[in-house]
Each structure stands twice: as C-alpha cells, then as structure tokens.
Design a protein around this nucleic acid. Structure first.
Lengths: 329, 329
DNA sequence: TGAAACTCTGCAATCCTTTGCAGAGCCGGT
DNA sequence: ACCGGCTCTGCAAAGGATTGCAGAGTTTCA
C-alpha cells in the first residue's frame, strides 16, 4: 500500500540507487534523469521512509523534548518554539511529560534514545547523579539548567530579577519579600542568585518559603508576607503570584495601592489578571527555538570545533498594574 | 556504540533469533535460555531498535498528535492525557502544532504518516474536502470533531451548554447573550446546537459575534452584550469570557452583581480570575486518554468488528463566583 | 586514433529486527 | 529398534533505504 523507493524506481525505469541519489545527492545524477525521477515520485506520492533511512545513516531525523509538566503554562510556549523550529529544520519531535518525576525522566530519555538524534531537557528535575546515568545515551541540550559540557539555553533570570528589584526600588519600596519556589530547583537557585546580586544597601529583602509554585501555594505565602510587613512581594513564578493576589483580594488588601506584587514567567494569564500582573517575561518560544538550534549545531558540527555551548536569552520586566508606589503608612 | 541484538546474541552464546524471541514470544524459548538471554541483555543495556522492528512488522509503536495551537491553554491538558495514556500502552508520541492552519495540518499528517501507526487530530481545522486528502494515509482518531467512519471522542458540549442555560435560568436570568467563536469551527457549531436544544420559552437568547476566541476578543464582545441589555453572558470559551470580564471591570460593571458571565473549557486560569469564573469543564485529560484508547483499539481489533467509533465525555458546569441572580433593574 | 578523465548509473552489501521453515534432539509408544 | 510428534533453536530472507565500488558511455586532449 505505501509507495516505496522500489515502486518509484520501477515506474521511472531506473534503479533504486538513482532514485535515492536524486533525493539525497542531486548533483550526482543527470539533470534529465533527476527531473524524471522526481516527477515520478511526486506523481506516485512517494515519501521516503525515515525509519529505513535512519537504520543505515544512523540519523533518525527526530528530536525528543521532555518537560516536567504540560499543565504548567510555562512549558507549552517553549514547546511551541521547539516544535516550530524543529519543523523548519525538518525534524519531527517526540514529546514526553515526566510528571515532575526525575526517575520517570530518566526512563523517558532512555526510551527515546534509540529513536532520536538528541533530546531537549526542559527544566530537568534530575539530580547531578541521575544526570550521569543518561549522559552519553544520546545528545542532550538543556533549557534552564546549566550542565557542564552540554549545550544550554538559559533564561537569564538573574538579570530579570535585577530589573524587578530596580523597579521596586525606583517606586520607593524599602522592604520586599521574595517567595521561594522549590528549594532544590535550579530555577529557584538562579532567581535567588539574581536577588543577591542585586542587593542594595537601601532595600531589605525578606525571604520566605519554599512554597509550591502553584496558585494554591499563594494564600499561605501571602499571609506570611503580610505578617512581615513588606510593601512589595516578588514571587518565584506567576502562578504563585496570582495565588498571592487572590488572597490579598480576599483579605481586602488592595493591589497595588497597599501591596505591590511581581511575578515571574509572564504566563498568558498574567496579563489577564485583575490587576494585570507586573512580571518578568522570559523568551520561552525563542528559548525553544534556540535549544533546537544548539542541538542541530551539536549534531552537524564536526565535533572538534564545538559550537556555542550556551545561549543566554535576557528577560524583560513587564510593568503592568500590580506594582506602584508603596502606601505611606 | 549502541548495543544491538547481535551483541546480546554473541554475549549470550545464542543466535539472534533466540534473543528476538526471548523478548517477543517468550513461550517459544526454553525457560533457562530465556532467563540467560534476558539477563545478558539487561547487563549490556540492550534496548531493541524500534525503527528496525517497525521496518519488518509494519508497526512503529508511535502515535502522532496534532493540535491547532499550543499556546491555547485548552490543548496542553488534552495533550497531557494523550501522552500519559500512550506511554502506558508503550507508545511514543509525536507532537505537532499546525498554527491554526489547515494546509499545514495536512502536510503534518502526511509527514508523520510513515513514522506512526496513527494520528490523533485535536479540533482539526481541516475542511471536509481537505480531510479527504489525508484519510487513508494513516489511521485517524478525532477529538472534538465528528467524522464519518472515524473514531471520535466528543466533549459533549451540548450537554454542558444545557447546564449553563439551566443554571442561568434558575438564577432568574431572562435575557442572555451568547458570544460566538469562529463561525466555521466545529466546536462553535456544537455549542450553538446545545444552545438551541436547550431553548426555553422563558428565556431569550441573543447571539453575537463571531469573535476571536481569545482574551483580546473580549472587550468588543462585552460592549456589544452590554448594549443589548442582557443580564448574563455565555462566552464561546474561557479566554473570551476573561476578556469580557476584564472589560466589564474597566467599565465599572460589577460581576456578578450587574452581569453574570459563563465561560467554556475550564482552563486553569478560570479558577484564578477575580471573580473566579463559572464555566463548563470539559474532561480534557480524559479525552486525550480516550483518544489513545480508541486508536489502540482501532489498530488491534481484527478490522472486521470495528470497536466503538465514538466516545462521548460529558461536561460539568463549575459554578464559581461570576454568576449570580440578575440585578433588579 | 587512442588513452585518460569524467559523468552517470547499477550492483550488492549494509543497517537491526522479525519470522517462516527446517533441523536437532528427546520423549513415548508400538 | 524405529517412528511420529514435541520442543527448542538456528538459518536466511525480508523490510526500505543508503553508499562504496565498478562498469558503461562520453568527452577531452595529445
């Protein structure tokens, strides 16, 4: 039923080698022949079987992407970038969701390994030890996680954090809470690092948490922050920030008049919240594309001259309505 | 570098056939031998090459999923279901995003065809004519789209619409607006159908639109609805509903006191809005799983006795704070 | 005119598995 | 002692493509 290279060869009156070459090394076959072959192929609707090709070339033409949780709105956007760029580069992409589970993540990498030329690990949950176990099974590129000797695209969270701090400082805030996400998470460490780098003599930071980086984590976090008497809150991510705003609304604390709130990620709903959330936008889709670029590069480059191992995308503070000057107490 | 069946055979001192059988038809090989082979394989870290296997069996062990737009929060959740269930059934999944573009969708199906045993089309944007072109290239299962002779999982939007209408009627609303999504969309037609089926003598429905089913479509829609003097609005989807609420807030119209708003989809941010949005929850993740089940079924069943062609999941109205009794004018 | 140098094409091996067929060894029955 | 029937294993073909090698035909140049 499916049309093979043999069918095309027969119909065109040439050998399979010629058909194959007409597609993969066009200059090796006479113009006239090539035209004829390509037309025949087109007419028959021939499409090469990538699995068969992969068997001999060792290249599958596929990538894998593993994300911790598809229902976290952060990931679909980077996924979108990965998918789009991969398609441009004529790769197909395998998707897997490891449910925030490092063990599962390992299993997925191993399961994919044979079917892909490389995999992109998004905010990998693996510990360094666990990483050891998968390194070498296939080519790896990381997003939002720095791993020695492996290409990585970073979201420059530290820079984003600086912008957030500067923004709040400019508004006049002098005592600000930072709500930690999961302590073990690389992202959280990065954001804290940015926080410390941006430390100012005229601003006091109180760290709270860790909290679950979800809407549900917000209320508890909000209550603690209020008790600390801060005038502004920077949350680990938007989901948490939205949860905080929801709690503030319930407690009758006006945002931004009585409390400023800053999120992180710029997920779609950040702009739709009331008030719209000031947040640090990461270039997710571009990060996805960059990851694919790094992977393609890693695969094509001669190996000796390693391409760039690291691409850093900068963040952008999006000032919306959830931040303003502190209330004069 | 990668370990093949040959390596295992050599190491275990048996033929490749035996190794192969030890995995695929265990009863054909003596217990003792099988143990030995499996242990050797394990020790060497052997994992069969699915491409090679597919070449001969004609089965790839892969599925494809095509969604119209990953950045629409509706899809990642069904994707999550697809992915999870596929993994349980030992399938890997190819993901593609067609950017709301039917032509691209066709191309994607065709590109995937050779590499998958079947593809799941989520809210396909193809016209019936275009569908003709891909039917037959591979096994197809649809989500949220009824296609003759093809397995389909439906979200029972009509039933959800009835619940929404009944809810508003019970609260005392007598004049309600429905904000249409894209006119050509199958989902929109389904929802309208539900609307008409639920028509009540004591309630007047005014249809508006079509509107872009996004947050940005909301303000325009809201203004029209207000001008119509309705006391409640049912939006094509949550994004639109959120956009409406945002506009109502801007115009100083209190939700739900002066206007009730109902959405559709129950996307994550629905529950986080202020006020939290009353909406119709679809069982996305279960729909994804069901689609995989149908596909597996379609592939394993003898062909003669076609399994079920249709699975309908019912919707559930989630009453939150955006609906209440109408203001007494 | 002949040889050298190209250009183009085909043959056959190869990639990794699965599977039909047949052979080897063993058992029980006559 | 022999034969039929099991159970277990190996040989070899097949699946769809790529590619090194060699051969056929053509051109170039001395």
């Amino acid at each position: 039923m499916p049309v093979t290279i043999q069918d095309v060869a027969r119909a065109a009156g040439v050998s399979v080698s010629t058909v194959s070459r007409a597609f993969t090394v066009p200059d090796l076959v006479k113009d006239e022949t090539r035209q004829h072959v390509l037309q025949t192929a087109e007419r028959l609707g021939y499409r090469p079987n990538r699995a068969a090709r992969g068997l001999i070339t060792g290249k599958t033409g596929n990538f894998g992407v593993i994300v911790p949780d598809l229902s976290n709105p952060f990931f679909p956007t980077v996924l979108k970038g990965v998918q789009a760029r991969a398609r441009e580069a004529d790769y197909a992409v395998f998707l897997a969701d490891c449910d925030e589970n490092a063990t599962e993540e390992i299993a997925l990498v191993q399961a994919m390994a044979k079917q892909v030329d490389g995999v992109i690990l998004c905010s990998s949950r693996m510990s360094p030890n666990q990483l050891e176990r998968v390194v070498g099974t296939t080519s790896l590129v990381f997003i939002n996680r720095q791993v020695r000797d492996h290409p990585t695209v970073l979201m420059g969270a530290a820079g984003g954090m600086r912008q957030a701090i500067d923004h709040l400082a400019a508004l006049g805030h002098r005592r600000v809470a930072f709500l930690n996400g999961p302590k073990a998470s690389w992202s959280n460490r990065e954001r804290r690092r940015g926080l410390r780098q941006s430390a100012r003599y005229d601003m006091e930071i109180v760290e709270l948490g860790p909290f679950a980086p979800r809407f549900e984590g917000g209320p508890h976090a909000a209550d603690l922050a209020i008790a600390e008497g801060v005038t502004a809150i920077i949350a680990f991510n938007d989901l948490l920030a939205l949860g905080v705003m929801s709690r503030l609304a319930d407690r009758g604390i006006a945002v931004p008049d009585e409390m400023s709130v800053v999120g992180f990620d710029d997920i779609p709903m950040a702009g739709m919240a009331t008030p719209p959330l000031t947040t640090v936008a990461m270039q997710n889709e571009r990060a996805g594309r960059a990851a694919v670029d790094l992977l393609v590069n890693l695969l094509t480059v001669s190996g000796a001259e390693a391409g760039d191992l690291r691409r850093e995308l900068d963040c952008q503070l999006i000032v919306r309505a959830s931040t303003s000057v502190p209330a004069r107490s």
